[in-house]
């Protein structure tokens, strides 16, 4: 089963992503901030990370940088979700190492499509 880690401090967002992805056959796990995501990543691998930017303890950019630079699975696909569509957010997300940047609130069909594509669920 294709596994996705949802990293967001907002419980409604985590729940939304969980229901959306589970309906589509994904297995979903959650983390409330970047550090908790690293704790999970230390023990297992995922097919995709769906990551918020602003979170306490460790923000999303720092998390992605850390995953790319010194984790056991540096190539895992990452989608970053930010509040604004501003060019700087997009640049920061991509330069931190995200593969894709989407803007909140997410549009469910579009997000699902991207998740399917990037997690390899379609292949």
């Amino acid at each position: 089963m294709t596994r996705v880690l949802v990293v967001d401090d907002a419980q409604t967002v985590r729940l939304y992503h969980r229901e959306l992805l589970e309906q589509d056959g994904f297995q979903v796990e959650e983390a409330v901030n970047g550090l908790e995501a690293l704790e999970r990543l230390a023990g297992t691998t995922y097919d995709l990370l769906l990551v918020d930017v602003n979170m306490p303890r460790m923000d999303g950019y720092t998390l992605v940088r850390h995953v790319r630079e010194n984790s056991s699975d540096p190539g895992v696909p990452v989608i970053m979700v930010t509040t604004e569509g501003a060019a700087t957010d997009r640049e920061q997300a991509l330069s931190a190492g995200a593969n894709l940047h989407v803007v909140k609130p997410v549009q469910p069909e579009a997000l699902l499509l991207q998740v399917r594509l990037m997690s390899g669920a379609l292949s």
């Binding site: 901030n33 970047g34 550090l35 908790e36 690293l38 704790e39 230390a42 023990g43 303890r57 460790m58 720092t62 850390h66």
Partner: peptide, 19 residues
């Protein structure tokens, strides 16, 4: 006790016996 709820200074390290 979980460092992820406390501070970003440390990195989790997973060993077979414990995190």
């Amino acid at each position: 006790e979980f460092m992820s709820r406390i501070s970003s200074l440390f990195r989790p390290a997973r060993f077979p016996e414990a995190i």
